[in-house]
Structure formats: C-alpha cells, structure tokens
Design a protein around this nucleic acid. Structure first.
Lengths: 196, 196, 196, 196
DNA sequence: CATGAATGAGCATTCATTCAT
DNA sequence: GATGAATGAATGCTCATTCAT
C-alpha cells in the first residue's frame, strides 16, 4: 500500500522547510561560500542526496531562500503602491519595515551578506530591481509634496538610512537601539515643522 | 654592501604592494572565495610560491588588506580625537569620510562584502572595536551639546546613515548621488535651527 | 480464480516489455551510462521501485535486452544449421541478416555500443560464442565447396564485412545505402564466376 | 635556483605522455564512462589534482587521445590525396591502414568503443568528417575508373569492410588472421580480371 | 503490487598550500 | 629569492538501490 498523494506532499513540505531553515541559519552565520552542502545535510540530519531531491543546486537553494524574504518585503510595499503616500501611510510603512526586520533577523543577515557579494548578487538584483524603482518613485513623490528642495537626493538618503539601520541591527541585534532609532526617524521625517 | 640590502628591501616593499593591490582588485570584484591564489599570482605576474613568501596564507593576505584600509580610516579620526567636535570639525569629519570613500572604492566594496561574513569579520572587528567606541563617545558628545533629546540614539542613527551611504555608493558608484547626499547631510546636521 | 492469475501474468508480461523497450530506446540513443534508472522509470511512467520489481539491477536490465536480440539472431541461423549451405540458402541467410538489421535498428545500435566495452560484453560473449563457432564452421564449409583458396580467411572476412555494414548502417541509417550494398554482396558472393 | 624553462618543459612532456598512455589503456579496456579520474591517477601513480594540471577536464583528456590517433590516420591518407589512386597507391593505402591498425591496437580499441557511444562521438565526428568525405570521393573515383557498376555503393562497402576488419581485429587481436585477410582484400580489389 | 523518499558511495573538479630544484 | 609541479582534502552533485508505507 503506497502512501497517498497527500502523505507524500506533507513529507515534502516538511522536509523542504527543514532544509530551507537549516540552510538559512548556516548561510547567515557562516556565509554562503563557507557553508557546504554536506554541512547543511548534516545539520538537518538528512543525507546529501536527499537535499538534491528538493533543490537542484546549491544556488537554487539560495535563490529560494532569498525569494521568500523579498516577497514578504515587496508585499508590504504593495499596499501603498497606489499613487501618493500620506503621512499616515509613511508612518505605517516605516513601522512595517522595522517589524519585518525584527521578525526575520536571520533572513536579513543573509540578505546583507549576499548583497555585497558581487558574483551572487546579480541574480537577486533582477528580482528587486522593479521594487526598488517603485520605491524610489514613491519616495521622491512624498518628499516633493513636502516641498523638500532636492526630493530625489532625499529619497536616496532615506534609502541609504534604512539600509544602514538594517545592517547595523542585523549585525548587532542586542546592541542596536532599534526602537529609539525608529522614533527618531518618524520624528525627523514626519514632524514637518521641524524638518528641513 | 648595504646598498644591495636596501635595494632588496625596496623590491620586497614594491612587490608586497603589488600583491596587495592585485588581491584587493580581485577580492572586491569577484569576491574573496571566488578568487584563487593562482589567479592573484597570475594577475600579478609572479609565481604562486612567491606569494607565499610574502603572505603565509590567503587569510593573512585578506587581513593585511583590511588592516591597511582601516588604518587610514582611524587616522582621519585621530585628528579630531581630542574631546569635543566643533561644527567646523564635524563638517571636516564628514568631508573626510566621503573623501576616503570615494578614493578607495574598491577597498570599501571589499570591506562591506567581508563585514557581513561573521566568521571572517571577527578578526577585523577587534581592530575596529576601539575606534567605534571612540567615535561613539565623540558623536554622543556632539549631539549632547546641540541639546538633542536622545544624543546616544542620534549617534547610532548617524553611524547607520554613514554605513548605509557607504554601502549604497560602493555597490552603485555611478548611480548614487554622493555629492548631493553629502550636502544634504551637512545641512541636516549643522543647520541646527532647521534640524530636529 | 485462475482467471485473475492469468491476468496478473499478462500485466506483468506487458509491463516488462514496456520497461525493456523504454530502456532499449534510451540506452541506444543516450548510451547506457548516460541513462539513469530514474529516467527509464519516468519515461515508462512507472515508479523506480516497480522497475526493481522486474529487474534486480540496471545491469540485469541491460543483459535481458541484449539476450532478447541475440536470441532472434541465433534463431535465424538455426534454420540453416544442418550441414551445408546451398547458394539459395546463402542468399536467404544474407537476406535475413539485413532484414533483422533493418527491423531492429535501435537494438543493434545498443549492441555495437556495448560490444566494444570489454567489461560489460564478456557476459554477452558467452552466449554468442557458440553461435559464432557454428557460423564459422558453416561459412568455411560454404567457401570450401566453392573451391576458394583460403576458406577460413574468407569466412573471417565475410564476418568482418557483415559487422562493418551493420555498424555503418546503425550509426547512419539514412545515409548508408543498405539495399545497394546488399545487392553488391549477393553478387560478389554468389556469382562465383566473377568472384575470386 | 628554480628549474630552467627546459627542465619544466621536459617534466611536463613526460607527465603528459604518462597520463595519456594510462588513460588510453583504461579507456580502451574499461570504457570511458567506467574509468574514473581517480583510477587513472592511481594507475599513473600521481594525484588527481596533478591530472587537472595537464588536462582541464576528463573530456579534454579523451579528446586529446582521440586527436592523436586521428591525426596519424589522416596523415597517411594525405599522401594519396592528389586526384586519383593508382593500383600501386591503393595497395600502399591498404597496407598502411593495416599497419596503423596493428601498431596502435589500444588506440583503435578506444576509437571503436567511442564511435558507438552516441553522446561522445559527436565531437569526434566533426574532426573526422572532412577526412571521411575525402576518402569517399577518392574511393568512388578509384572504382569508377575500374568500370565498376555502382562505384559509390562499392566505396561504402569497402569502407564498411575496413571498419569491420578493424573492429574484429581490435576485439580479438590474436584470433583474427589479419595478414591473410589483408592478402585476400588486395587480391579482391586489385586483380581486376577476377574482380567484378 | 506500487510509490517515491531516503541513502551513501562515488564522481569530476577546485584550490590552498608545500617543496624540490 | 623564485618557480611551478605536486598534493590531497574538500566541494557540489549524481545515481543505483533500498525500504517504510
């Protein structure tokens, strides 16, 4: 009596998740190149062969991990996609970024480790490209409506700031005062009277 | 024949620099793990064996490259080390950071690629630790004197901002408007009346 | 319920044939080592496990394929086994060889691919050995009765010729003019007056 | 004191030859796919790594082996390239083929093992293509001048014959009476009066 | 009988490092 | 000092085979 289709599906689902999580953990902490397939299989207590039953290469494994996190990020963004960003939406947006950051620390650690690896990052870039452009358009519009002198440069700066915060937090989650910094940012960017 | 000795020394120095520069170029563009010792030796037109005459391992080569750049950074900082930062000194400080960034793009690209690789970065961290603490004390003091509400958080935020800018610039040197962003920062942080 | 039993048997027979044919197709076109059990199972739309229900190893599968084709060849031969070969029988013999060749192209392609692999071929050889000897005796006799000077060498040569034709045809079925070549051979070997 | 250029060259030459010969031996006897790089290195008493210092892949190793033998064959042929083949040249030609066959048995064993392996052979074919066409043109002309009825089919047949002999000889060098067969062929194809 | 998840040995290949010359 | 041949451990990956269900 063979297993039913559903039983197989369930096994596959479980295994795949196990592998993805193990790989994320290792990639984030040891680096992609420093993590061997053997090590992942070992840590996940499965055979090397089985891993290849679920992912056809190490690179595909990486891609699936990255896709997962990017999708979540893009989704957040999609909610505010329609035209302009009101102040309230901007606050919500910042809030969500920080929330995602805090909920998926390991993932973002990997993301930053990868983002700076010339060879690997190109593939990720393709996926994020569209998102980045959308973000940039929206932010520029936001600053434009605030009568900021150089809204484009301001959008770049805001982006860099969020990158910097993310990186600092991810590298040193205990030491970096995320909450305080978040408050600071919301003040800076939304108390218009005090803001340049 | 002391002259011969000197000449030898000079040759060694030159050759070491050649290797360091070749390796930096390759590490930055292709990634540390993707760059083989063979490739470095080839590119530098020396034999693999000779490279090991100058650096006892690939890792040491990397460490020396990193040390080299950090020193430069620390030096800049040392000049303002004494107690407080005046507005003029702060402007000078920001100016210098951007200058270093622009003059050593390849180095910083490597730096960021490495900074996110926990295993490798630990050694670098030791060296930078002291510098970071010093920087942090100074920045906190600077913001304190400006009557900023939470000077410590503000120092973290400023650090994160500089990190973010550096990373963005280094990843996309042509597209990122450094100069404009620099002006924005100086305005934000020194036209205190307009700044929160 | 003897009927069920029979049906089972029938299913088994059918399935086995399906596997054999699928494997032959793949072995011939992609090579034995390049064809994985997975691929065969896939192509035959059965599970890997089931395949092992019919053949206890990949090698056994290959052996059964080879045996199957050899049997057919040997059977043809059996009909002329008794003593001498008349001219008419010789023509019939040649005809049949060409017929088998043309009807089982895939099989012979595999056969030649395998025939030159010493390790694998040894087992096949055992089966063909007896047939070859029989053939040789018969051919020698045939040439002997034609008053050919060295009937034994002539038999070797005839065998080599048939091998060569088979190989050429099998490697390039469209380009090789089998029919014309067959006519040529029959002329050469049976119009004795014109033939040395 | 490093080795001189020539010393290095000599070492390389020797090593390369050693690897080629070892690989030929194994490829011929065990088959290409059945022979692992490990095995070759072992047999040659060198490390796997060193092999890759001389050949950049297993496939390149095979190609170099094949090229070597094909070149020799093509060279023989080149001598008679100019227009027609006289009877004397034809005898010489046949003689040379048999000579090459006997002097490089291992090589031709490999050649036949490869020639029938669909995936691998394509690359060889490119190299031999031109030679085969040339051969075919020349043979057809030869038979045409002999007033043979279908010179083209006769050329195909002659080619198949040589293939078959080669294969039989190479598979069973002791048992196959090359010399007698050679005599038979020369008689058949050059005693025009007796030949169809 | 039938499934496909799981295994593990084996493979081609790379590469930091050593060392005889 | 200088060379590059040589090593061998490690890596990503494949695949015949087994087995719980």
């Amino acid at each position: 009596m063979p297993r039913t289709e559903e039983q197989f599906e369930e096994i596959r689902e479980k295994r795949k998740k196990l592998i993805l999580e193990t790989a994320l953990e290792l990639f984030a902490n040891e680096g992609y190149h420093n993590t061997s397939i053997s090590r992942i299989a070992n840590e996940a207590k499965i055979s090397k062969g089985l891993l290849y039953n679920y992912f056809k290469s190490k690179e595909e494994l990486l891609n699936e991990i990255l896709s997962f996190g990017i999708d979540e990020f893009v989704n957040v963004f999609d909610q505010n996609k329609d035209g302009n960003l009101t102040d309230a939406e901007m606050i919500y947006f910042i809030d969500r970024i920080f929330e995602i950051l805090q909920n998926n620390q390991k993932y973002w650690k990997l993301y930053f480790a990868i983002a700076t690896q010339p060879t690997i990052f190109e593939k990720v870039l393709e996926k994020v490209q569209e998102f980045i452009e959308e973000y940039f358009r929206m932010m520029t519009a936001f600053f434009y409506h605030k009568d900021i002198e150089d809204p484009e440069a301001e959008a770049y700066l805001f982006g860099a700031l969020m990158d910097g915060i993310s990186m600092n937090f991810v590298m040193n989650p205990m030491g970096f005062p995320v909450e305080k910094v978040k408050k600071l940012i919301i003040n800076k960017y939304l108390n218009i009277k005090n803001f340049e």
